[in-house]
């Protein structure tokens, strides 16, 4: 059974309908990529899964239970961590405090989770006492992902984790995503970087103007020229 099952999803911002009849699923243990051009609606879908937005219509089932109208804090409690686009860290707090806040709903295993995050991102341990706002862009992205892991999620939602990073850091981030998945966390990632996303993902979906245009295994999509075409308009 799928860990996350989304059916007939429709989402609107006020009168503006942006997501139309979207269906997809993510199995436990998988890494699944949601690809698409800027403005296709990828971030909207993530925000709807984690409860920041409410759908107009459709069902979101997670671990066998409907979470269609869930509040964001409840989503975190149930094991869904969302690493938002643009890093959204607590800039005036230390790196360590940022990570501790990631464990807000799950303080029990704070020590273990902190160790695990430091093991994946040793840089964060070196910078533990530093104000998060003084970190480089790449380090802030690592912090955002690390903070998401602190709640010990079963499902990690990653929104444009590599956006705006130098190529060498992009490799680091994708390598970290692979490790996180190997350690048992299911990953659903939204990306504009088709190449890297399909390198780490098992399967992918291509979103165009709010509808799923294509889907398939990572290999299939990597060899399908329609994927790149969907980024360039018609």
């Amino acid at each position: 059974m799928a860990l996350l099952d989304v059916t007939d999803l429709d989402v609107a911002y006020g009168d503006i309908h942006v997501i139309w009849d979207v269906d997809f699923s993510v199995d436990a243990g998988e890494t699944v990529a949601l690809l698409g051009a800027n403005g296709a609606g990828k971030t909207t879908i993530l925000k709807t899964i984690c409860g920041v937005l409410s759908p107009l219509d459709g069902d979101i089932v997670y671990g066998g239970e409907s979470i269609t109208e869930i509040a964001p804090e409840e989503a975190v409690r149930r094991g869904i961590a969302h690493v938002p686009e643009g890093r959204e860290i607590f800039a005036d707090s230390t790196v360590k405090r940022n990570l501790e806040l990631g464990a807000y709903t799950n303080r029990g295993a704070m020590g273990e989770n902190l160790e695990r995050v430091y093991e994946i991102f040793p840089r964060l341990e070196e910078r533990a006492g530093q104000r998060a706002g003084t970190l480089s862009g790449g380090e802030q992205q690592m912090l955002a992902i690390g903070r998401g892991l602190m709640s010990e999620p079963d499902l990690l939602l990653l929104d444009e984790a590599s956006l705006g990073l130098a190529p060498v850091l992009v490799d680091d981030v994708f390598e970290a995503i692979q490790r996180i998945n190997e350690q048992g966390t299911t990953v659903f990632l939204v990306e504009q970087d088709i190449h890297n996303a399909l390198r780490v993902a098992d399967r992918g979906y291509v979103l165009k103007s709010g509808r799923i245009e294509l889907s398939g295994s990572a290999e299939e999509l990597a060899g399908d020229e329609r994927v790149e075409a969907s980024y360039l308009g018609e």
Binding site: A81, E88, F90, S93, L101, Y104, T105, R147, S151
Partner: peptide, 23 residues
Amino acid sequence: TSTGHAIRATSQNRAAARYVGID
């Protein structure tokens, strides 16, 4: 206190506070 930390986190970045599960 952890509630105090949550208050300060909310004051810094409300969106991020919601993503870590703060009501």
